[in-house]
């Protein structure tokens, strides 16, 4: 039996980092645990993106704590306070920074930190501390739901650009930006972020919409893990953006099988990121994926990941219109024929 691993080159580069394969564990609570990070490396992940440090987390938790400590004070002469002094300090980002440091000590693969927020607030200052802790790169998750009808699309986009610029002013390490798909002109957005200094675009964030509980008439949070079908949206845009932007492209959401990884590469992604697959099937699934990837490439006679990257991007396919309205019309007409 040929050792495919010796003849097929799975390596790729992403954010200027040399990775041994395109499989990356994306940001999730799994990554809060150092043990899991080690397991991911052992299972063959080429890099990990740590759980997000949320802007609100730092402020709201702190503000709530302060609010309730004050609200329970000065109630009466017998209860000037209701709580003792805190034994420790609310460390907020300190814990996260320590986690970055600990991960860097524990594994050799690149560790990418993740910041999640929507304003140019003080949280941006943590970027530098995360860099100092040794993070190899920073992924910016700008998850914003504009509900204000007075805010224009352009203003939303401008805010993204300003945040990226602000982060770039803080750190030297590479910066990736994780996006959602709902921009009017995705390609233009990509270019703008390029210009702002983003070294990678991570497509796409999954928007979690709440559901309705009809019995209690309540709006309830709803977390559904990604389904394979979601891959197509990402393939589409990566294929369109490949070659149009300088930034590396990363695909996240909907990666469940080795062929999904292949598709991602062919569309033009440098890396395929996954969370739901690992949650469903365990961290060791990374090893299975890597093996299946090798087998597929062997069977289809590909030498390397690099060889296939972008091979089916919009500019590389004979009919680029497939990525535009033509596909839409074909799909509809194929349906009506039935």
């Amino acid at each position: 039996m040929i050792d495919l691993a010796k003849t097929i080159d799975l390596s790729t580069t992403y954010l200027g980092l040399k990775l041994k394969n395109p499989l990356v564990a994306s940001a999730s609570p799994l990554c809060e645990d150092l043990g899991n990070i080690r397991r991911m490396e052992d299972a063959g992940a080429a890099a990990v993106v740590l759980q997000s440090l949320f802007e609100e987390q730092l402020e709201i938790e702190s503000d709530d704590l302060d609010r309730f400590l004050i609200e329970s004070s000065e109630r009466s002469a017998e209860s000037v306070t209701h709580f003792p002094e805190m034994t420790g300090w609310v460390r907020g980002p300190d814990e996260y920074v320590e986690h970055v440091r600990a991960c860097k000590k524990a594994v050799k693969i690149p560790v990418i930190a993740s910041l999640n927020g929507t304003t140019k607030g003080g949280w941006l200052g943590y970027a530098r501390r995360i860099e100092q802790a040794g993070a190899d790169a920073l992924e910016l998750n700008i998850y914003s739901i504009p509900v204000d009808p007075d805010v224009t699309g352009e203003q939303v986009e401008q805010r993204y650009v300003e945040i990226v610029q602000a982060i770039k002013a803080e750190v030297q390490i590479p910066v990736a930006v994780k996006l959602g798909p709902y921009f009017s002109s995705m390609a233009n957005m990509g270019r703008k972020l390029d210009a702002a200094g983003a070294q990678a675009l991570v497509l796409f964030n999954r928007f979690y919409q709440p559901d309705y509980d009809l019995e209690s008439l309540e709006v309830v949070p709803n977390l559904i893990l990604s389904i394979p079908h979601e891959l197509l949206l990402r393939l589409h845009w990566i294929a369109v953006l490949y070659g149009q932007v300088k930034a590396d492209l990363a695909l996240t959401g909907g990666i469940h099988t080795a062929t999904d990884v292949v598709k991602a590469m062919m569309a033009g992604a440098k890396v395929a990121m996954m969370t739901s697959a690992l949650l469903k099937r365990g961290i060791n699934y990374l090893d299975t994926l890597a093996t299946e990837l090798l087998i597929w490439m062997g069977e289809h006679e590909y030498d390397s990941i690099k060889q296939m990257q972008g091979s089916m991007s919009r500019n590389a396919v004979p009919q680029p219109a497939a990525f535009e309205r033509v596909n839409y019309m074909k799909v509809l007409s194929s349906y009506s024929v039935r």
């Binding site: 938790e61 702190s62 704590l65 302060d66 609310v90 003080g122």
Partner: peptide
């Protein structure tokens, strides 16, 4: 007085 509760409280 408020430092232990977090940086954001102090800044505000």
């Amino acid at each position: 007085t408020y430092g232990k509760r977090g940086e954001s409280v102090v800044q505000k």
